[in-house]
Design a protein around this nucleic acid. Structure first.
Lengths: 401, 401
DNA sequence: CTGAAAGCGCTTACAG
DNA sequence: CTGAAAGCGCTTACAG
């Protein structure tokens, strides 16, 4: 055992005296006394001879080279709970309880709120995170950064997270099979959960993420033992295939990039099943990429064949738009000569210029389910391990009817 | 003065003894001794009779209901610097220095790195933020959430921020004239800087942000006394106008939504100046919105007039695409009958389907300049107060030549 | 180069 | 309901 002598108690005593004074009405809790309170605090912090902490304080105060108080009287976020406590004549604990979910008397709450108002106090979320139950941060791992569908997902998710009063730490992950150092750093912020957006990330990365002690969810991706939500891609493929078959098409092609992402495999499987049920083969349309050019070129190749297809089902809308352009180049009438069907229902698909028929994932429902899973962990529930599949809708516009 | 007796020193002594043992070679710094070290730590934390902190610890340990050690041997991020220090036989300070920019001897660094490796230690960024110079967080205030150009900006900025080893806290701001509570909360995370993306946010919001003690920058917006970067919109407007004039157009319209955003005002001013220099008037094309439909309808109205324009300069590419569609509806040849010019050069503009001529902001240069400003504040420089204008380029494709 | 101590701004049992 | 104390996981002068 060792005894240590701590000399900050004088400040404590001053504070207690002041509290008594405020309560007895000898001093009012006004801005003026607030300044007074600050003077007391300061004297506590740097007794003569000036103690080391004074040096340290000023350095930190300096670090952003801004005054403690804004020119317009609003305070910067440097006001601390102690300052509020001093001005209100209560303890720091009371202030904490008042801003947290603790019990505070009406009178105390009133004083604290008034003081906070005056000083412009807002609790430091970082300090809160260090000691509290959670950080309020949700890390969004953006795997497919140039997928316009993911753009949509990201925006809706950002809105939903803000709505739930959480914060989004957005991390662009440029590697597919490993985590970048930048991502690792972002993960050091103790996010309450991680959401992997998009289907291109490898199972290995998912495995790495599972090694962390943070719940991980996936959006638009299945497998890897992670919970999450996804569009029922197989169902979507089946819906598309069935629709084309029923509208009398016989030479039906599926256009996609060769790479076997999970979403692609499933859409294709459902599609193939639908054609097979009708005794039809799947014509192959291989694209260089999953973008406009890819769709354009794959369709061009198909249209140049001796027996061109009478229907195209494209892995996504952008490719379908490329295919649409190819059809125009070949002077094919859409949908009379060739039906074109996309997937995703990006905003552009609905533009009158295109009138693209497509399979629309129920994005809002997916986001809703994901948010529910996310919020469950704040209730102390263990992270889900299953992927919730959400059924898409067929949107019939002009390009396939 | 008050004397306080602190009983944690026993743990300290044990630690010191152990350090000596490790150094003298009596114990090796292996995984096994690592577990041993943890046992010591544990005994320090809960001496018999079990002290209160044991309770508190277990609660916090429980809070995520995960074991201290993953099934595959990887550690969760719950390993602390103290554990590494114990295993390496050094002080917590040494570990901190090793992961920070402090001075550490080669041997010490080796031991610490080995121990960290074994335990899977990564410094807790939140704790670091609380005590360190900065948080490494950059708040991105996303004002125009459905502007596809801002999508592009956001992605590039996310990449640049990750590249600079900073983290992006992305905040969707749905209100134009005030900050939402959600945004206020996000700002409580002590971001090192705030970047306002997009031009639609009001000066009042900018004023509120300036009240915080965090440097604020703006992207694609001028005024309000905030530093930042923006496309030289006036110059862009002038380039567009001059180009149309020089290609022989005489009845030139400017299409935009009536609302007077800053970018709109400037583009229009430059454009009008170019036409005026040629003695030409600006034909007005008023749109409902700044999207595809808006462009389509405004163009439709212009084409229906007794003397339709022979050139359209649109506020942005999406509107220009709408106008292009309107031209097709009117069976107008582009560019022979009517030239169409956009602004932004979104990826779609370059698709062969459109071949949209447009004014291209130099996005990479803008991002580069913004990042430079952002990084300056980490050097202790005061936030810049001026907006750097970056000159755009004219991209001539098929719709105006 | 190194360790002990103090501190960052909060929260949370604990004991009134 | 309230305050004093301990603690969250780090960093950083300070004094060797």
């Amino acid at each position: 055992m060792v005894r240590r002598i701590i000399n900050e108690a004088c400040g404590e005593r001053e504070r207690a005296e002041r509290r008594a004074a405020i309560r007895s009405g000898r001093i009012g809790a006004s801005l003026t006394t607030g300044l007074h309170a600050r003077a007391i605090t300061a004297s506590r912090r740097s007794p003569e001879p000036p103690c080391p902490c004074a040096r340290s304080r000023s350095r930190i105060g300096d670090r952003r080279m801004r005054p403690e108080r804004g020119k317009d009287g609003t305070m910067g976020s440097r006001v601390t709970a102690q300052q509020v406590a001093d001005l209100a004549g209560v303890s720091r604990s009371a202030v904490s309880r008042c801003f947290g979910d603790g019990q505070v008397s009406e009178e105390t709450r009133r004083r604290i709120m008034a003081a906070s108002q005056t000083l412009g106090y807002r609790p430091n979320a970082i300090a809160r995170s260090l000691t509290g139950q959670n950080t309020g941060l949700i890390a969004l791992l953006l795997a497919e950064i140039d997928n316009p569908y993911i753009d949509l997902v990201l925006k809706k998710l950002l809105l939903a997270i803000a709505e739930a009063d959480k914060r989004a730490l957005v991390i662009p992950e440029t590697r597919q099979h490993d985590l970048t150092g930048s991502t690792m750093h972002a993960l050091d912020y103790q996010a309450d959960a991680i959401v992997v957006l998009g289907g291109t990330v490898s199972d290995h990365v998912v495995e790495q993420l599972r090694g962390l002690d943070t719940p991980v969810f996936q959006f638009g991706r299945q497998g890897g033992g992670l919970g999450g939500v996804a569009c029922d891609n197989e169902m979507g493929g089946r819906m598309g295939g069935r629709f084309l078959v029923q509208s009398g098409r016989r030479r039906i092609a599926y256009i996609t990039k060769a790479a076997a992402t999970d979403a692609n495999r499933r859409r294709r499987a459902g599609f193939a099943a639908a054609l097979e049920a009708a005794g039809l083969p799947v014509l192959e349309g291989v694209a260089q990429d999953n973008g406009f050019e890819g769709g354009y070129q794959a369709a061009t190749r198909l249209f140049s064949a001796p027996e061109p297809p009478d229907a195209l089902f494209c892995f996504n809308d952008i490719m379908a738009l490329g295919a649409l352009q190819a059809a125009a180049t070949f002077r094919l009438r859409v949908p009379e000569d060739v039906a074109i069907l996309g997937f995703d229902d990006i905003p552009m698909a609905g533009w009158p210029a295109f009138g693209l028929s497509t399979v629309r994932p129920n994005l809002d429902l997916q986001i809703g389910k994901l948010m529910a899973m996310l919020l469950e962990i704040y209730e102390g529930a263990p992270a889900r391990r299953t992927v919730d599949l959400v059924q898409p809708d067929l949107v019939v516009r002009r390009t396939a009817a």
